[in-house]
Simulated scan of single mutants.
Amino acid sequence: MKPIHFLISSSLVVLLAACSQQESTQASGTLERDRISLISTASEIVVKSPVKEGSKVEKGQLLLQLDSKNQKAVLAKAKAELAQAQANLTKMLNGERAEDIDAAKANLANAKAKLTDAQKHYTRMSELVAKKLVSISERDNALAERDAAKATYDSAYQTWQKLTKGNRVEDIEVAQAQLAATKAEVVLQRHKLDELSIIATRNGILDSLPYHLGERVPEHAVVAIVQANTQPYARVYIPEPYKHKVHSGVTLTVHVDGIDEAMKGTVRWISVEPAFTPYRNMTEEDRSRLVYLTEIDLPDSANRLPAGIPLQVDLEGI
């Protein structure tokens, strides 16, 4: 008869060998669904939180409202600048008012009359100087008056020309560009205002709300996580000896904890790199311990199952 300790040791060896064989022919993982992380675009205070964690949500539903007073003021300023740019362009396209043109025309006629009178006075002074009836200084004064009158006339003429011909094409194009810029600014600021309302982008379950009512959230912080209501998939780690057999499109048998009937899943992706990167040369035995993250699409029968359930995938017979 063999000793009792020998029998116990033999039994342990057989049991360990069976466990090792089972582990080597199965890959472990969990059932997962897409998780949507919604991020804040500004550092503001949470003023409304209408949905509780764990609730079903629909696309477009408000999950969190951040304080919008500051952004509304920025938008109002952008709208005022848009109105100003629009008014400036309209003024340039319509030209000057008829009253301003008439006033400029009257000033031009007045300047022309004064220039004519000054020219006649200068001509008379020149004739009198030739006859030595007046001094040269009086003629020079008449010349200065004539030149001043001509300058006034030229100025009035240019003003009248500007009012009647309208604005330059270049000035109108500048005004149009300013109007386009202010319109774009209004669109941008309105978009930033809308982003302060955190809404669900897909149907699903509100998985997490990291911030509470009254808290100030940092900019670019995750403020809500939605578990998408889509077909679940298995996320498992395939051992290195089976990697050459597992590729996109391969069908595998999946066992979900608590579900008696096995499911057929289809591999949609397997990582090129192992779960960790070796930092030195590895032996064949070491390489066999590497695992590769893999995602497997599950059938419609898995739709009712929640995320996070452990599962195993059969690798024998691939």
Rank of each mutant, 00 (worst) to 15 (best):
T182N: 06
G249C: 09
L143R: 12
A144N: 14
E127F: 07
D286T: 03
S248P: 09
L15N: 13
D286I: 07
I296F: 06
L66I: 04
D297A: 08
D207R: 10
L16E: 06
K165H: 11
K243M: 05
M282R: 11
L252D: 03
K79T: 05
H191T: 12
E240F: 09
A221M: 03
Y279L: 14
E44N: 07
E240W: 06
A200N: 05
K56V: 11
P278V: 02
S137R: 13
R168H: 09
A98G: 11
P241T: 01
D34Q: 11
R202K: 15
G54Q: 05
V223Y: 02
L305Y: 01
V169A: 15
A234C: 03
L38H: 01
K114S: 12
G214Q: 00
H5L: 13
D102Q: 12
L64E: 04
N203L: 01
T25Y: 09
A109V: 08
T182G: 01
A221Y: 04
V226D: 06
M263H: 02
V222H: 03
A175F: 01
Y211P: 05
Q86E: 14
K91M: 07
D260H: 12
Y237P: 05
N88T: 10
H247D: 14
A113N: 10
M263D: 01
Q227S: 11
E215D: 12
K114M: 09
V129R: 00
A83H: 04
K264P: 05
P274H: 01
A17D: 12
A180H: 05
A228F: 00
K79H: 09
D207E: 15
P210H: 00
L15G: 09
A76N: 10
G249D: 01
D257P: 04
W269F: 11
S288K: 09
W269N: 14
K91R: 12
Q26V: 12
K2F: 15
H121K: 12
Q84A: 14
A262K: 15
D207Q: 15
V226E: 02
R280Q: 10
D194N: 13
D147S: 07
R304L: 14
S9H: 10
L115Y: 12
S155P: 00
E173D: 14
L206R: 01
E215Q: 13
R35Q: 15
T253L: 14
